[in-house]
Design a protein around this nucleic acid. Structure first.
Lengths: 360, 360
DNA sequence: TTGTAAGCGTTATCAC
DNA sequence: GTGATAACGCTTACAA
């Protein structure tokens, strides 16, 4: 392990003062070409990299942003973090990742406290900004200590949150139109000719669940009835789709179609149905939300809603950088969920059948 | 944005010297209970967090480790990074994540240069250690500039790599027995009664591909013939499984079974087969490697090899910490790939059929 | 037990 | 153009 070479030694080796080296490092014009050449050579020869730590002491900038998420294993988050890392790096920022793993089937007995602890580390580390992708803030009822800690954090360093705004939180929220996506998929199923439609997945007490479920119910209420036994909440994971669907299978007769809260849940549902020798979409149709990359390759290919989460992630970084640089924020951009019709909804199948019977 | 409070102001407010505050911060015993109490109160009141940056200047430690990977979207990597983040955080380390996105269908024309650039950032940021999960180092022929830069990096800060050792690289490697996994799955298919077995997926020129393919061929050669037309390399993603399988479908007759280089590729293959109304395992069996979490819920459930990548990730952190603290390394731990028999291989199906025909 | 002062590696502010 | 020197926030001898 070679000891790190410093600007002082470079200066000595080049026969100049540290200030001159510093000037060369920062591309200041007020250095003679001759000295600049000498210094550059020494820097190159010794492969000198100035210490960001020392620089940070002076500038009060670390060129680092922190990202908080609850499950790095979840494609919903990785799609976003991929964009954040990429765009951040383009702008000269590195990414400190904190993965609380409090989502889903977690073993933490106090997720709020876990996140608060992360906030402390973030302050210590003196990042320039923070992006929160999910966690405690997504709850209908947010822990008060958590909220206080979050506001305190936002007081020290700009915090951008991708999620539904909380009136008691001073952070900047990048909003997603959850209701619209749920309306789109529900309407699509109705328009495809299904009348009895169920809803599965989503953790109760989480805003995304409530909002999608509410939108589902509202949309349904215009055209048809929804019984509570056709709604099975659980969580956002594949095993939750499996368990919700399995429970629903005890209902007779089954709904014609199902709205799954996301593609993972949809996939779990397909698995549960297959175990009972039920086919999708022939025996029951499935539409879902949050287009995950694999959904296009499933059997059947999943009809779903693309929420364009990567776009939101990019906007989050942009706004955060504005906050960091005290620039004006971009005006709020519209967020358009998009329906992707594939196979699991059976729409095309039905259409073909209709055409066929029309011809007869 | 409140300006950050410093140790100096805490000292003034508490009516003591900065050293006393520092002592309290560092739990030094040589502070009177009285002063300690006063200082603690002020710290608490003002919610003071000492600056890691300033501390790092002195200690030359940032309590940060960097992780390099090529695709955060890939479950192969997220399983590992989840462990690294968790275990690292338990030990007081934060994680700087660099995602080069050079894997798979990348748009980078020079992945080696991309990684070299990341190395520079890592040195600047003065992390305490580095873990590399994949990238240029996985190639059969590693770029020489890259290798030089990597060795230089390892000269400044300890680097641990999860992957196959490279004799020209001075970093510490955590090795995985790729060959053994491939042997296990191949033998399993052979033992299940398949004779003509194909191999799909994996990027040519990548060690993991070569090693698994070689092990596959060797194992096969003991019991049966393998024709080159039954081998279709491509890459590690779902669309690669689809394309490889689609290509292979032009071969008549088809192999009885397929070894996929990982579960994603296997999933793509199932999709390609379904498009031709071919069933797995009835028409063709599939065995794969690298148990991804979803594989258990696919239709059919995927027979695969669990390489226990999370365990390797944990070992990598442990060894890295030893390196950081100049402690003795743990002795090399054995790594045991494990066969998970599910549905896609058709082993159970065949067994039942055999039993049935035995009874007749 | 406590305080003073030097020092960590850089940049910024002065003189020269 | 260039070079001393102070400053950033903290820790750590060394003194008292």
């Amino acid at each position: 392990m070679e000891p790190k070479i410093t600007i002082k030694e470079i200066a000595k080796l080049a026969g100049v003062s540290v200030s001159t080296v510093s000037r060369v490092l920062n591309e200041s014009p007020s250095v003679s070409d001759k000295k600049r050449a000498i210094v550059k050579k020494v820097i190159d020869d010794y492969n000198f990299q100035p210490s960001m730590v020392a620089r940070s002491m002076i500038s009060n900038k670390t060129h680092t942003i922190a990202v908080l998420l609850t499950d790095i294993t979840n494609p919903y988050f990785t799609a976003q973090i991929e964009q954040i890392e990429r765009y951040g790096r383009e702008q000269g920022y590195s990414l400190l990742m904190f993965n609380t793993m409090t989502a889903g089937h977690s073993n933490s007995d106090n997720p709020a406290a876990d996140e608060i602890k992360v906030f402390e580390t973030i302050i210590e580390k003196q990042v320039d900004g923070v992006i929160i992708l999910g966690g405690e803030i997504d709850r209908e009822k947010v822990d008060q200590d958590y909220l206080k800690a979050l506001n305190q954090l936002n007081d020290q360093v700009p915090v951008v949150i991708i999620g539904q705004p909380n009136p008691d939180c001073s952070c900047l929220f990048i909003e997603r139109d959850e209701a619209m996506g749920a309306r789109l998929i529900t309407t699509h199923l109705l328009a495809s000719g299904y009348h009895r439609i169920g809803f599965i997945g989503g953790e109760p007490g989480i805003k995304i669940t409530t909002q999608r479920l509410t939108a589902f119910k509202q949309t349904m209420s215009i055209y048809a009835e929804v019984s509570n036994s056709d709604i099975e909440l659980s969580d956002f994971y594949i095993q939750d789709g499996y368990s919700s669907m399995t429970t629903m299978l005890k209902t007779k007769p089954l709904p014609d179609a199902i709205v799954a809260i996301n593609d993972r849940v949809g996939q779990g549902a397909i698995r549960a149905l297959a175990d009972q020798h039920l086919r999708v979409p022939e025996d029951i149709a499935i539409g879902s939300c949050d287009a995950f990359p694999d959904a296009e390759w499933m059997v059947p290919r999943m009809t779903t809603i693309n929420q364009h989460n990567e776009v939101l992630a990019r906007i989050a970084v942009q706004q955060l950088l504005h906050l960091i640089n005290n620039e004006q924020l971009d005006s709020v951009q519209t967020h358009l969920p998009e329906l992707i019709i594939r196979e699991s909804c059976g729409a095309k199948l039905r259409h073909q059948q209709t055409e066929k019977s029309d011809n007869t």
